[in-house]
């Protein structure tokens, strides 16, 4: 099967659940705000429900972590800060999809390596795809022709036709926004072979992140290799 739409490998596989109420908070408004930041609506609701079922008593922790886990990259720093301050790992484990004893390692390693998940050392593989053909709900009108790694951790810029886009991604999220102009790093070099990375970067020691453009799709893949 060829993947045609943008997707994240680590996207939470959760059964749809209604958004549970928050005491003193407008749950619908919080969901709208999280979705505006890039969280997937159903995943956010299901994660919040899962966190509450696991006994979470701090709603702001739950909102931050669930929103990040559901795809809101702008909540990344807040979620990590909250995870660092927590005593109990049971709820965090339920939200992050790992074992309770792995939460501390996840939080520590994420500070330097935004692609880390417990068990990912020594492995290589696809993290996420972004873009996709505009005609079926994606963002790109043409296949990606050029890409460059930007200075910011987890950031690439890609060009499809005359348009440049910025990608910001991590283990859970990928945000795509149009750029007004070509980034300074743009070289105009188009890769000759489809199986070669369009761009690569090593923002963390031993972690190479590559931008691939598979043939016959309008997607750009992020691919991570670890030493």
């Amino acid at each position: 099967m060829t993947l045609r739409l943008a997707a994240h490998l680590a996207a939470p596989r959760v059964a749809a659940a209604p958004m549970p109420p928050f005491e003193g908070l407008d749950a619908a408004a919080v969901t709208r705000a999280a979705v505006a930041q890039g969280a997937e609506s159903e995943a956010f609701a299901a994660l919040v429900a899962a966190g509450q079922a696991a006994g979470e008593s701090r709603p702001l922790d739950l909102i931050a972590i669930a929103a990040w886990r559901a795809g809101a990259i702008t909540l990344r720093a807040d979620a990590l800060a909250r995870l660092r301050e927590r005593d109990s790992d049971d709820v965090a484990a339920a939200l992050l999809g790992c074992a309770p004893h792995e939460v501390a390692e996840f939080v520590e390693r994420q500070a330097a390596d935004r692609w880390f998940m417990p068990g990912s050392d020594g492995k290589a593989g696809y993290v996420c795809s972004v873009g996709g053909f505009a005609g079926i709900g994606g963002a790109f009108r043409r296949p990606v022709e050029e890409g460059v790694a930007l200075a910011d951790d987890g950031a690439f810029a890609v060009r499809e036709g005359p348009r440049w886009w910025r990608i910001d991604a991590d283990v859970w999220c990928a945000r795509l926004v149009p750029l007004d102009a070509a980034p300074r790093e743009a070289s105009g070099v188009v890769p000759l072979r489809a199986d070669e990375p369009v761009a690569s970067a090593m923002w963390a020691d031993g972690v190479r992140v590559s931008l691939m453009v598979p043939p016959q799709t309008h997607l750009a893949w992020l691919y991570v290799e670890r030493a």
């Binding site: 709208r32 930041q37 909540l75 807040d78 909250r82």
Partner: peptide, 21 residues
Amino acid sequence: SASPTSPRATAPQQMTAEDLV
């Protein structure tokens, strides 16, 4: 308009749970 009406192509501005609420 809840979302930026002209998104700036810089690193995502980090928010907190308090901001969402």
